[in-house]
């Protein structure tokens, strides 16, 4: 079996992290969690006018999962820091998935605001897991700022395009000495397996599960894919060759 994943000294039970955004109904939370058995589960922080919205939190608490609040939708470091502070107060965790996006169309990280927010949150005692681009230089800057992990995107949020630049993800993995979590873009099981084969330490998927025709089946598929990819990474794949190489003996052929 694969070795456990440690982030900020905490051992997580799985290398699959799950986002809850997009599930068509709260009643799916329990069976999806049962199928995925995720190491972390993300939630967002939003204005509330009714405690009826608390059904999600009750379901997550009942499942005993570790929560990772995000700062999704924040466009500035100032907004992200306040959102993280609110999340810490509401949920009692100082872990945060830091998202600071540049615009609402691309949903791509704003590198400048992201680094500013990361520095400030680390100063305030947060365990910061930043959603970032697949840029090894920015990843290193985030680690220098004290981030506990980096979460590069495989492709844009919700696109399901998978890992568009495997070489960049491998370069991020090589550039930092903290866990690398492939975040965003996973569309199906093979995307998650590829990310793990590239050396990622974990995969976060939301849309791939929550908007699948059968979220429970896809949750199970991603769990298996992450495990398979991790094992394959450790096993060491054969080099790619331009030409064939027989796997059966050449000696003793009948003639």
């Amino acid at each position: 079996m694969t070795t456990p994943l440690l982030i900020a000294g905490v051992e997580l039970s799985s290398r699959l992290f799950l986002g809850t955004g997009g599930l068509p109904r709260t009643s799916l939370v329990a069976p999806v969690l049962e199928a995925a058995r995720p190491g972390l589960v993300t939630v967002s922080i939003r204005r509330t006018s009714s405690l009826a919205e608390g059904g999600l939190l009750a379901a997550l608490r009942a499942a005993g999962v570790r929560l990772l609040p995000n700062t999704a939708g924040c466009l500035s470091a100032r907004e992200a820091v306040l959102t993280a502070e609110l999340a810490r107060e509401a949920l009692g965790t100082d872990w945060v998935k830091l998202e600071v996006i540049g615009d609402e169309r691309s949903l791509l990280p704003d590198a400048v605001e992201l680094l500013d927010a990361a520095e400030e949150l680390v100063r305030r005692g947060f365990v910061v897991l930043p959603y970032t681009t697949d840029d090894p230089v920015l990843a290193r800057r985030l680690v220098d700022a004290g981030c506990a992990a980096v979460m590069p995107l495989g492709s844009p949020i919700g696109s399901g395009l998978g890992v568009l630049n495997p070489h960049a993800i491998a370069a991020v993995r090589a550039a930092v000495d903290v866990p690398v979590v492939l975040d965003a873009g996973v569309g199906t099981a093979s995307d998650a397996a590829l990310a793990m084969e590239l050396g990622c330490d974990a995969v976060l998927a939301a849309t791939a599960v929550t908007r699948a025709d059968d979220p429970v089946a896809m949750a199970a598929a991603l769990r298996l894919a992450v495990e398979a990819g991790r094992l394959a990474h450790g096993a060491g794949r054969v080099p790619r060759r331009a030409e064939a190489r027989a796997s059966s003996p050449l000696l003793g052929l009948i003639s």
């Binding site: 986002g19 809850t20 955004g21 997009g22 599930l23 993300t42 939630v43 967002s44 922080i45 939003r46 204005r47 509330t48 006018s49 919205e53 608390g54 999600l56 939190l57 997550l60 929560l67 609040p69 995000n70 999704a72 609110l86 999340a87 509401a90 949920l91 949020i157 919700g158 976060l204 939301a206 849309t207 929550t210």
Partner: peptide, 10 residues
């Protein structure tokens, strides 16, 4: 005043 809670998110 901002009053917030946890909701579904990725």
């Amino acid at each position: 005043v901002e009053v917030v809670t946890a909701v579904q998110g990725g």
